[in-house]
Deep mutational scan, measured.
Amino acid sequence: MSIQHFRVALIPFFAAFCLPVFAHPETLVKVKDAEDQLGARVGYIELDLNSGKILESFRPEERFPMMSTFKVLLCGAVLSRVDAGQEQLGRRIHYSQNDLVEYSPVTEKHLTDGMTVRELCSAAITMSDNTAANLLLTTIGGPKELTAFLHNMGDHVTRLDRWEPELNEAIPNDERDTTMPAAMATTLRKLLTGELLTLASRQQLIDWMEADKVAGPLLRSALPAGWFIADKSGAGERGSRGIIAALGPDGKPSRIVVIYTTGSQATMDERNRQIAEIGASLIKHW
């Protein structure tokens, strides 16, 4: 067993022997301040990774656009098919120029040779490549099948209805392509620590998230040296922004954090800054 596999296998073990965790309302004060600064709703939840206990939450059962955070769930569904012998990570998928959609920095470079399922998941999570996500959605049967996968996990809230990039439209009061912070946090925890996926697939999923290259201005910008984070960000229309993450000190994750916002007129930089400040408060009061 590799060191990384050992780390993920012992996530519940280490967490069980940690000192009790206590909620700190100071972080919620910052979440509410972010709402004021952005002029928009902000949803927040913080779960203990081992027990699933909610440590703090704000608007945990209000719907927010998922945006690209759905790509972690998508690759979880792909990995479940791999575990069941219905898919192979090494299978190569070929596609054409007509398949390319807006923001496809990886797939646009491989029109000639195609990409493997493993490479597509890596591109979808680490670079948020939209064509990679659409190609992977095709392998599982489309958005409705991802929703069905989530329902089978016990998540009857999260739903995907459309493809990239239309799913980022974020129309107010439109339930399409949305989740709730509580539902997303619980589902992410199941994917990373539950028995739904094999140990190898859980490790692969967290490795992809740990290698995320496009979430630097968010929670990662607030992390002290030595902290662990595996995350996936999302951005959408109407001032929408979000991030889902597993993080913790001492090089291992111990909490799940989900943050979503929508309806702001603020710039992307300002949305990023507010999420980073929430992260800084979380870490300060850990």
Rank of each mutant, 00 (worst) to 15 (best):
V214Q: 06
G85I: 05
D83T: 05
T179K: 01
P143I: 06
G114C: 04
D113G: 10
L120V: 05
G239V: 01
R220A: 04
L150M: 15
M127R: 12
I125E: 02
A222D: 13
M127H: 08
S281N: 15
L120Q: 03
Q88M: 14
E61D: 10
N50G: 09
R162D: 06
D174H: 04
T69I: 05
I275S: 01
K53Y: 14
L192K: 00
P105A: 10
Q97G: 12
R176Y: 10
V31K: 01
L199S: 10
T126G: 06
N152T: 14
W286K: 02
A215P: 05
Q203L: 06
L188P: 00
L223F: 05
D161Y: 05
A211W: 12
I244G: 01
V82W: 09
S201R: 09
L49P: 05
D99C: 05
A225T: 08
V72L: 05
P181L: 03
Q204W: 07
K71F: 02
G141C: 10
V82R: 08
T198I: 06
L89D: 05
V72Q: 03
S128T: 01
Q88L: 14
L89P: 13
R241S: 14
T69L: 03
K213E: 05
D269Q: 14
V82Q: 13
A183D: 06
A245F: 03
P65H: 04
C121H: 01
G52C: 04
H151R: 09
D33I: 10
I256A: 13
P181C: 12
L160N: 05
Y103M: 12
L192D: 02
I54L: 15
I256S: 02
G194E: 08
A148V: 07
N173F: 11
L120A: 06
E108A: 15
P60G: 12
E164F: 01
W227C: 00
D174I: 03
E164Q: 00
D207K: 10
A276F: 11
G90E: 13
L223S: 13
T27W: 03
L196Q: 07
D155F: 01
A40W: 05
P172F: 10
D129P: 00
A266Y: 08
D269K: 06
A235R: 04
A245T: 12
L219R: 03
W286F: 08
L282S: 14
V257H: 01
S201D: 00
P172G: 09
G141W: 04
L73E: 03
Q274R: 10
E26L: 11
Q203I: 05
G251S: 13
E56P: 01
L247H: 00
A123K: 02
C75W: 03
R271W: 04
K32A: 11
R220M: 03
S68G: 00
L146R: 01
G248N: 03
W208G: 01
D269M: 06
A148I: 12
N134S: 03
A170W: 06
L205D: 00
T193C: 13
V117K: 03
H285A: 09
